[in-house]
Design a protein around this nucleic acid. Structure first.
Lengths: 236, 236
DNA sequence: AAAAGTCCTTATGTAGTACAAATATAAGTA
DNA sequence: TACTTATATTTGTACTACATAAGGACTTTT
């Protein structure tokens, strides 16, 4: 066993993690699902069967199952029991990506992550863009030019980039960036407070739009970098 | 109330989603945390207080709390009660990113997501690369050249790209791509089965390494695109 | 007076029972 | 056969009980 050295000061002993029954049941169930190769639609054992098999109360089993239900990995119907389901992979992220509960390090990394996505988007966008989407962008650019307030311009900024993701035609990617947005904005306003002025890249949305119309993915990438350069400059 | 039109055939009425008490308590708690502006370290009400305030059983409250515990949003200590905590944002993703439970559409999108990350990495990598990391890459390139088996080469491929993420110096990004990897590989092997040969880009890892040593981020991006081109070609 | 021990109180963790609600299956009836 | 009714099963919710850990107050010891 572990002996506590008396009078030795700092023992350097990590507090051994106490894992609750619910945690253990959750792990076991997760392993079970994988080892059985269960796919969406497959039924899983009844609550009582699980409880008896693992030697715990139904209560604990339900708390563990509740977690899988939140993730969308299982669904239940009365009498029919539980079946595996298609989880929405971003649902769980949604609950956790709150700038206020993230520490500054995580916020900074997510800020960078969005820059990376933005930079990597070019080829997808060029591969999939359609005529009507070009005019959609043009409309946003025009709206930005005529914008009266800062708030309006910020909205145009958000819309322009969101539209790029839409053009890229990847739902998960689009939703992902939307989740990152609040964190990104939070860092942005922090950055703004430091420098006391809106940082503007050399390339505007209009510039990006023009390249999208007549240029190449490579040009677009370079332009996007210039567009985002003020942010890139803030990262160490 | 809702009237069922007898004999009218399709009523076009959506089956109203039955949301369980646990779901509702989860939602209410989430709103509560946000509205109160709770940050890690802040205490939250006792289980019984929540149960009484919401008019539900302690059981339901615990099932909802169990979900937040899984996400790492709250921690509990006996007698001291529960406090808000720093969630690990990728922990929840981990449970859900299993190629076997994702449908083909989600897998395809995640495949693309990884391509986007790869493409967007350039500037971060150039901004942060250090001498010893260059030699680390060189070692991998050498290992790949001398590789005897396919398995060995695949491992070198994984190592090379993982090292790029490490160089980018963004933990979340690195872990994120590691989570995407199984899904990526799954799609890759599917792609392989279709074409019956390993798709190889014009630019090898060695080529990327050389550019990293003496080139520019823009060159690196173009080279990376060529390197990944076989994959880009498969996307619609 | 400081350290150690004892007891009490509080909040979470686990177990168990009971019953409501929904629904697939079986049984019964026209 | 078709339609209705009973039955059994499984999840959802509530409640009780007790174990367990830990902070606090109080007493004892050195």
């Amino acid at each position: 066993m572990i002996e506590k050295k008396k009078g030795s000061g700092d023992t350097n002993l990590q507090p051994l993690e106490k894992i609750s029954m619910t945690d253990r049941v959750e792990n076991r169930l997760g392993e079970y699902f994988k080892s059985q190769g269960l796919v969406p639609g497959d039924p899983i054992p009844k609550e009582m069967e699980i409880a008896e098999a693992l030697g715990v109360s139904r209560n604990v089993v339900r708390e563990a199952l509740s977690r899988f239900k939140m993730l969308g990995m299982i669904e239940t119907r009365k009498r029919r029991g539980m079946v595996m389901a298609q989880p929405d992979i971003l649902n769980s992220l949604e609950r956790v990506l709150d700038p206020y509960i993230l520490d500054s390090h995580a916020r900074k990394e997510i800020f960078e992550l969005r820059l990376v996505l933005e930079m990597g988007l070019a080829h997808l966008v060029f591969a999939r863009i359609k005529e009507e989407q070009l005019s959609e962008l043009e409309e946003i650019v025009q709206r930005e030019i005529n914008a009266k307030s800062v708030k309006e311009r910020v909205q145009c900024d958000i819309d322009f980039h969101a539209t790029l993701y839409k053009i890229a035609g990847n739902d998960i990617l689009g939703r992902f960036q939307k989740l990152l947005l609040p964190v990104f904005d939070y860092e942005l306003s922090y950055e703004l407070k430091l420098k006391d002025k809106v940082s503007q890249g050399k390339v505007t949305h209009q510039g990006l739009y023009e390249i999208l119309k007549t240029g190449t993915p490579e040009e677009f990438q370079s332009a996007m970098y210039e567009h985002l350069k003020p942010h890139f400059d803030t990262i160490a």
